[in-house]
Amino acid sequence: MKISNEQLKEMYLTMLKIRKFETRAMDKFAEGKIPGFVHLYLGEEAVATGACANLRKDDYITSTHRGHGHIIAKGGELNYMMAELFGKEDGYCRGKGGSMHIADASKGILGANGIVGAGHNIAAGAGLAIQYKGTDQVCVCFFGDASTNQSTFHEGLNLASIWKLPVVFVCENNGYGISVSQARHQAITDVSVRATAYNMPGVTVDGNDVFAVYEAVGEAVARARKGQGPTLIECKTYRFRGHFEGDPTVYRPSGELEAWLKKDPIPRMENYLKENNVITEEEIKKMNADVDKMIDDANAFADNSKVPALESALEDVYTDIVEEGRIR
């Protein structure tokens, strides 16, 4: 595995950004600043980071309801993200999407999505556009273990494999579909075995090991860029929080979370970087302080942004039609 020290630091920074953004979102949700549903990515940072470290700005991703990590790793702006979570007019979606619908076409982010499994077919469509135009871009499709029971998983993988589309399907197997454990929602242990049905390579990696993810996705991306078709990569990981904030997580066996906290991907990466003299303790402190400032800034940006003008609810339904509002 060849990763420059500079890139290693960049990846570490991304992990920190996700961790601290999510921690702040958790706090702000508890304070009542963030309405609706929030699904946090805490604990799964290595997957988005390792996968997106292989991508260019012009590559695409499709994301999920648990999408903040993917968006940050693909270059999403923290200010606009936080403002969207707050439902403000400077948010990515101008306050019309919230946590589950952040997108940034200029960065290839085709959107988080509130429908479990919606991304598989959309990613195949992105792959079709890439192949049609003849570029060497790729699309990474993120999804959870539970979504692999949706018909869309099978439809998307099938289409991508028969047409050899440049899509990398990255399954974040966090062991649960909401409250239902993997053992109760599917009769397989490794999601990657499902690749066989679509005659594509399927691998399982430790999703809390950012290097394992980076390497597996890197290989798949290289294949996709060369026109050799899709790959299914399963990253075994765990969410430190519940399905959504407010989830009492009564379905978790005792000791499970504690065991996974010991495998926290961030200290793991940090130790590697220190042991291999990539980074000093001082640099780590500085990076933490830098990211804290970014999060404070994003929080302030969101706080200071206005609530959307009511008429804006009528905009963006179509490119060219604005429906009538109501007078109140």
Binding site: A105, N121, I122, G125, G127, A129, E155, N158
Partner: peptide, 23 residues
């Protein structure tokens, strides 16, 4: 020609339209 896979047909249209085609 696509497989008999209506979700994939519409989904592929959504994804490819988002990426600049007019399917």
């Amino acid at each position: 020609d696509t497989p008999i896979s209506e979700g994939a047909i519409i989904g592929a249209a959504v994804g490819s339209a988002a990426c600049g085609l007019r399917p």
